[in-house]
C-alpha cells in the first residue's frame, strides 16, 4: 500500500468515528462547536502521529509481555508534551477542552493504532497511518461539531447567522444532542459510502 493510500484510508474506509466507532468519549464530549471539535481532533492527531512513530521505532526492542504498558507510557509522554504546548500557546482552547486532553491517553484510537499497525510497520508508514487516521478523526469531529453548532447555537465557526437576541435549540449543545447527531451522522455515512461501493 502506498503512502498516499495509507493517509486516505483513514478518511473514509477506516474512518475512526463513523466506521470503526472508536474514541467515542471525546467525540461526544468536545463537539459542542466546530472549533472545539477541530481542536480536539488536531490534538489527537498530534499524539497519534508521534506515538505511532515512536512505537514503530522501538517495537522490536520491547518484550512482547510488557508491550501494552510500554505503549501506554509512550503515549502518556506525548500527551504530557501536548499539555505543555497547549498551556503555553493556546490556553483558551486548553481550558475549554479541559479534562479531555489528558484523557487522550486512554483514547482507544491511539492504543489501537499502536497495536494494529505501528508495531509491525516502518516508522514512515506508521507516521502516514497516524496522519490518515488523525485526519479522519479531525474531519468527523469537525462535521459533528458543525452540525451541533448550527442546530444548537445557530452559528458556523462562531459566526452567528440567526438574530442576536434569539437562541438555537439548546438540546443539541447539551448531552442528548450529542448522541442524537452522532447516530444520524453514522447512518448517513453508511448510506453515502454504501452507494459509492456499488
Amino acid at each position: 500500500m502506498g503512502k498516499f493510500q495509507l493517509i486516505t484510508k483513514g478518511l473514509v474506509k477506516e474512518n475512526p468515528t463513523f466506521v470503526l466507532l472508536l474514541g467515542m468519549c471525546p467525540t461526544l464530549a468536545t463537539t459542542t462547536s466546530a472549533i472545539n471539535g477541530m481542536s480536539m481532533g488536531l490534538a489527537t492527531l498530534f499524539v497519534l502521529v508521534l506515538s505511532n512513530m515512536a512505537i514503530a521505532a522501538v517495537a522490536k526492542v520491547i518484550p512482547d509481555k510488557v508491550r501494552i504498558p510500554a505503549y501506554i507510557v509512550i503515549i502518556a509522554t506525548f500527551v504530557t508534551v501536548l499539555q505543555f504546548l497547549m498551556q503555553a500557546f493556546t490556553p483558551a482552547i486548553y481550558e475549554t477542552l479541559g479534562l479531555f486532553i489528558p484523557l487522550i491517553v486512554v483514547n482507544c484510537i491511539v492504543l489501537g493504532r499502536a497495536e494494529a499497525f505501528a508495531n509491525k510497520n516502518t516508522v514512515m508508514d506508521s507516521a502516514c497511518d497516524g496522519l490518515g487516521i488523525g485526519l479522519g478523526f479531525t474531519m468527523s469531529l469537525t462535521i459533528l461539531g458543525l452540525v451541533r453548532e448550527i442546530l444548537g447555537s445557530g452559528s458556523i465557526f462562531d459566526w452567528k447567522f440567526i438574530p442576536d437576541d434569539s437562541d438555537g435549540i439548546l438540546a443539541f449543545v447539551l448531552a442528548p444532542g450529542a448522541f442524537m447527531v452522532l447516530a444520524y451522522l453514522i447512518v448517513l455515512f453508511k448510506k453515502v459510502t454504501a452507494k459509492k461501493g456499488e
Binding site: L21, L174, P176, G177, A178, F179, M180, A183, Y184, I186
Partner: peptide, 13 residues
Amino acid sequence: IPIALITASILAM
C-alpha cells in the same frame, strides 16, 4: 450502534 445512540440520547434527555 445508531439505534443504541438514539436510545442513549433519550436517556440523557
